[in-house]
Design a protein around this nucleic acid. Structure first.
Lengths: 215, 215
DNA sequence: TGATGAACATACTACCCAGTATGTTGTCAA
DNA sequence: TTGACAACATACTGGGTAGTATGTTCATCA
């Protein structure tokens, strides 16, 4: 692996700054209501900078989506090898996921937007191939939870009927902080984790999770 | 009350058709990506028809929002006078609400969009007063459930910590079919109600609802 | 039966925005 | 030092869109 020179570092930082600003704009105004000029203005820059790094608005959005999902996988990966009961593993995964939703909210809102747009078919044919990869990326992530749900039910720790519906409802609950959470003034890490814990508990119970595993 | 003449009937039907088409378009493309021409085209008409009945795009959207909430209140109202335990009342309310989300999905998506837009502050100053009324309308609706939740907890049938968080998570679950539900081919009323029941059960358990009330 | 107005359609304008073409500046390598 | 190129900024174009101004048709009523 070669070390990055100062120049490459600055390039990457510039790209990351754009991604961050774009995520914020997409969160605040949605996809179509966000103009490239909006993103540029929020950076104190102009269009030129954006188009130097990204082919198009759709491409910029796709990169925001991908970055968000990359962070999700990174947060989840350390937990995948955990042995033992699926319900216990699920709790760790759910906690990490909700924490991730809150701490990277703008990116997760973009992921949400992307999934929604895909479900509505609101993409042009050329974008489809790139976009389909991203949706598969996201679906695969969802399937990780889905498999754990199935295993947990087989082990008798979960009690739900339709797996697909249960998975949908679970994700709605776990993802929901991207819509309603915002840090109070003076909020501590402990306060934050308490919110996360309440969300996870709600989802766990919703899945028919047994109380003895609640601890 | 005066009976409506043929002319007034047709006017009202025309308005209702526009509202319906607009709700569909807003659902499929979001607010900003929906053009007035799109709505008109889906009706086989032109802009002139839309602007004859509505002042602006924002006004059209507001009316879709209002109509959606009107239907929600209409579905909920018969249940408000029900005496007895709050948890039992909650179940009836939740069932009616979820059924409503599914059967009037395009309008409910518009309500969702409207709330989201308001939370983002994506409205111009002039629209604010009209829009604030609608948001209050929706908040009041939410508070009906909120009060029942509080009462249910006081009666020992619910077990959650923060009331606001519980209310948020509950609504996310109950509303979620507007995003993932679509009728299968050959789906019966019983199939539909089974889906609704699963959603309500998930939300009920998430609130820490006691199992003996599940029936 | 002719005048009036509701319910539209048509035609037009001003503006915004994605994308492009081109100019500018600083850095680094030879 | 110089030329080459990355990393932008500036200037422009074409297409789409909200809103308006103005026609057209047809029912209704005096």
């Amino acid at each position: 692996m070669s070390t990055l020179g100062v120049r490459e570092q600055m390039l990457d930082n510039s790209r990351a700054d754009i991604l961050s600003a774009a995520a914020q704009c997409f969160m605040e105004r949605g996809y179509s209501a966000t103009s490239i000029d909006d993103v540029a203005r929020s950076l104190g820059a102009t269009k030129g900078r954006i188009y130097h790094h990204f082919h198009s608005k759709a491409d910029l959005f796709a990169e925001v989506f991908r970055f968000g999902m990359d962070m999700n996988y990174a947060a989840l990966e350390p937990l995948l090898a955990v042995p033992g009961r699926a319900a216990v593993k699920w709790k760790k995964m759910a906690f990490a996921h909700v924490l991730q939703m809150i701490t990277t909210k703008p990116f997760q809102r973009a992921v949400w937007l992307g999934v929604e747009m895909h479900l509505r078919g609101a993409t042009t044919p050329e974008q489809r191939s790139v976009f389909n990869d991203l949706i598969n990326y996201r679906t695969e992530y969802g399937n990780i939870f889905r498999d754990v749900l199935r295993k947990g039910r087989e082990e008798g720790d979960f009690d739900f009927e339709n797996l697909s519906i249960a998975n949908q409802l679970m994700f709605m609950t776990l993802n929901s902080p991207i819509f309603w959470y915002s840090a109070r003034t003076g909020e501590t890490r402990a306060d934050l984790e308490d919110v996360v814990r309440q969300v996870v508990t709600c989802a766990y119970r919703g899945l028919g999770g047994k109380e003895e595993n609640t601890a």
